[in-house]
Each structure stands twice: as C-alpha cells, then as structure tokens.
Amino acid sequence: MVDIGALQALAAVEQHGSVVAAAQMMGFSPSAVSQQIKKLEKQTGFSVLERHGRGVLLTERGHALASYGRRILAELEELQATLLADPTAPHGRLRVVSFSTACRGLVGPMLGRISTSKVDLDVTVVAEDPREAVAHVADGTADLGIVHNWNSVPLEVPDHLLLEWLCEDVADLLVHRNHPLAGYEEVEPSQLINEHWISTPHGAICNEALLRIFADLGRIPQIKVYDPDFATHIAMVEQGALVALMPRLGRSPLPADVIAIPMINPVPARQVGLVHRRTMAQSPGIGHVVGLLREITLQTVS
C-alpha cells in the first residue's frame, strides 16, 4: 500500500521544485523527505525522481503519481474536515496567516473570544503579506488566510482556494498638524506630488498601491523611508518629516500631532477577505473562526 506521508512528500517536491524547498515547507529535514521518496519508490517499484544537474526532476510516472497523490490528499482532507468532524464542536489546530493590521484589528479580538469560550481550538497565527498568505494556504502550510486586495493592485488566488470578502478598508493621508494640508477635508493625488513619503518596502502590496495612485499623473511618489511597520509611519509623521498613506483597519489611535485626511479621485481602499482551501469549506473549525471574524468585522469596521 502506498504511504500517505510519502505521497505528501512527492507532491511537495513537485510543487516547490526541490527536496530542500519541500522539506522547508513541510517542516522536515531534507534527508527525511528523501527517505519518504525512497519509501515511495520501493512501494511502487519505479523511480519518481531523477537527477538533473545539482537538483532533481520528477519522472513521467512521478508526475502522474504526484497528480493522483494531490487528489487523494485533497479528498482525505475533505473527509477529515466533514464526515470525521463534529459540526457542533469545532476543535483541533488551526493555522492562520494574516497581514499585520488585520492581526491587530480582527485576529486579536477573535483570539480573545476563543480564549473565553468553551471551544477547544488551538489557533496559531503568523503575520505575512497577502501574497505569502495565499501561497501558504494553497500549499497546505496554513489553513486560513486573511488577505487584502487594493482597488489598484489585484490579488491572484488559485482555483482550489475559496475567497470571501469581509469588508472594505479605506486608507487616509496622514500629515503633521502643522502641515499646509492639515485643515483640508479631503485631498487629491495632484496635491501631493511634491510630498516626501514613508512607505512599506518595495514589492509590498501597500507600496504598490501608493505607486499606482500617482501612475495616472505620470509621476512617482518621493519615498524617502521604507519600513514595514505602520507604527513607524505614524512616528515619522508625528516628527513632521514625512507623510504616509495608512489604512484604517487596526490603526492605533493617532497622536495629537497627526491628522488623518480622506483622499479622493481615487479613494484608496482595499477589500479585506478570507481564503481557505475548498476541501476545508465544511470544516467546523474554519466555520467557527470565519463566523467570529464576520461578527467582529460588522462591529468594528465602518
């Protein structure tokens, strides 16, 4: 009989391109993954990997077996999440990946409610950019992702994942109270061409959203500081050195010297949503956490 763990190892090697990458994804050593592959070859009677330079490639029969393996593993996950689970008593371990402001604004309150309830759910959370969150849920290293999709930067989601939108999260311009724009009720990008900005790092979705705001003007914002932490953005604005674009979700109360001004034409906004594998759609644990997040969103996000 073919070993499920060995099939999992082969599918991971195919998906991630190497034994080392598969081992990192699965949380095993490369030698442990290699042993699983050898076990699979012994059980099937044929080679599933072949040497190619310093790496490996799947053989034709290896690709076919990996394809079967993915289907079997998906059906097994669905079985465990439905028929073998008690829908009235969600329990077990749930791995969540979320962007940082949602950790503060949504995940924190959700964990608080779980801790004071009788639900036996062990939830672990890792903060990641939405693209990484989608990748983790897609490859099985996470069960639920909390993601965002800016109106100017679409998020790609594989077909085997389900995406459900929770809310719209609008971003504001943050300036020092002595800034010339501080008394404005709203501002447009054309008024901000000469401003000096702090932004999330190159490649981050929020950074791309800032760049897209100015794209129609044929300009690039003058970004002077790159930092992933929005708390640093607020601190920089408080010093009067820079301006920032900041979403409202999970935003800490602003200091007295920092003013938030709505932006228009366009209004910078992102959709906040949840992704999980289709095979987990009926999971009691997923259903319970999604329900809590919906309730918290209705209560906290305007």
Rank of each mutant, 00 (worst) to 15 (best):
I4E: 10
L10N: 05
A12P: 01
V13K: 01
V13Y: 02
E14R: 01
G17M: 01
M26H: 00
K38A: 02
L40F: 01
K42F: 09
Q43D: 15
Q43C: 05
H52D: 15
G55S: 08
T59C: 09
T59Q: 06
E60M: 00
L65W: 07
Y68F: 14
Y68H: 15
Y68A: 12
L73K: 05
L73V: 02
Q80T: 04
L84H: 11
D86I: 13
T88E: 11
T88N: 10
G92H: 06
G92K: 04
L94M: 12
R95G: 01
F99V: 02
L111P: 05
G112L: 00
T116H: 13
L121P: 05
L121T: 09
D122N: 15
V123P: 04
T124I: 10
V125N: 02
E128F: 12
E132Y: 09
H136D: 11
V137F: 13
A138K: 03
A142N: 04
D143L: 08
L155F: 11
E156G: 12
D159S: 15
L162G: 03
E164Q: 11
C167Q: 10
E168A: 04
E168I: 04
D172G: 08
L173W: 12
G183W: 05
Y184L: 15
V187I: 15
S190V: 12
W197H: 10
I205G: 08
I220V: 11
I223G: 03
D227Y: 07
P228N: 09
A231D: 13
A231S: 10
T232N: 15
V237C: 10
E238F: 14
Q239S: 14
L242A: 07
V243A: 15
A244N: 12
M246L: 11
L249M: 10
R251H: 05
S252F: 06
P255R: 09
D257Y: 12
V258F: 09
P262W: 11
I264G: 05
N265D: 15
T279G: 03
M280T: 03
P284C: 14
P284I: 09
H288L: 11
H288T: 09
V289F: 02
